[in-house]
């Protein structure tokens, strides 16, 4: 995709860093090649391209059967069993309140993501690739996009002429959104 991870010299050139010198080794210090490059899984939901850091993803699975849970929001598909633990599975298309053509089909996958020490399943239309992005190539989401959906965007990156939206799991998986509107919730656990 956009950049080869092996393209060391260019990366160094851009970041203003140099290769480790003999002196560095003498001091017992080995300068690492850029530690801050992060790999992202790029996937498609509707017509848009989204990404999540590979560190947040535990597994990419085929879409599996789920058990619907009553009294939950429309985007909650239900619960499923992943290696012995029960996890909620959501439809990202509905969660992101996207509209338009759905491309869901045999390319659809469930991304098993880890958030706040728990696993969640996110159903996406297709997984595209794994890309490496340097932090300086990520832009803050411009306020103009914000609108109602802006809260789900952590940052944006340009990948081969297309914009990749890095999702903010904190808001996408906000627990209070899971309960269907109008249902009375239990008293909070620790008052």
């Amino acid at each position: 995709m956009a950049r080869e991870p092996g393209d060391l010299w260019r990366a160094l050139d851009r970041s203003g860093e140099s290769l480790a010198t003999e002196e560095d080794y003498e001091h017992g210090y080995k300068r690492e090649v850029r530690q801050d490059l992060e790999r992202y899984v790029a996937f498609r939901v509707g017509v848009e391209l989204y990404g999540l850091s590979i560190r947040q993803i535990a597994e990419i699975a085929k879409v599996f059967d789920v058990t619907p849970v009553p009294r939950t929001a429309d985007f909650v598909l239900g619960i499923g069993n992943v290696r012995g633990s029960v996890i909620p599975v959501i439809d990202l298309f509905k969660r992101l309140r996207l509209s338009g053509e759905r491309m869901i089909g045999r390319f659809a996958r469930t991304l098993i993501v880890r958030h706040d020490d728990e696993l969640y399943g996110l159903v996406v239309d297709a997984v595209i690739d794994v890309v490496t992005i340097a932090p300086e190539d990520l832009e803050e989401a411009p306020g103009a996009i914000a609108g109602p959906r802006g809260e789900y965007i952590r940052s944006l990156a340009r990948i081969g002429g297309e914009i990749l939206i890095v999702l903010e799991l904190k808001t996408v998986l906000a627990t209070e959104a899971f309960i269907a509107p109008g249902v009375r919730v239990l008293a909070k656990e620790d008052a």
């Binding site: 059967d65 058990t67 619960i79 069993n81 633990s85 029960v86 009375r184």
Partner: peptide, 27 residues
């Protein structure tokens, strides 16, 4: 009994989930 996790724990009327035969998850 398996816990439902933070997101669904608060759903009123549901206490947890469990597995029945044939890999079926049941509330």
């Amino acid at each position: 009994i398996k816990p439902l996790g933070k997101a669904l724990r608060a759903v009123p009327g549901i206490a947890g989930a469990t597995e029945l035969g044939a890999n079926r998850t049941v509330l």
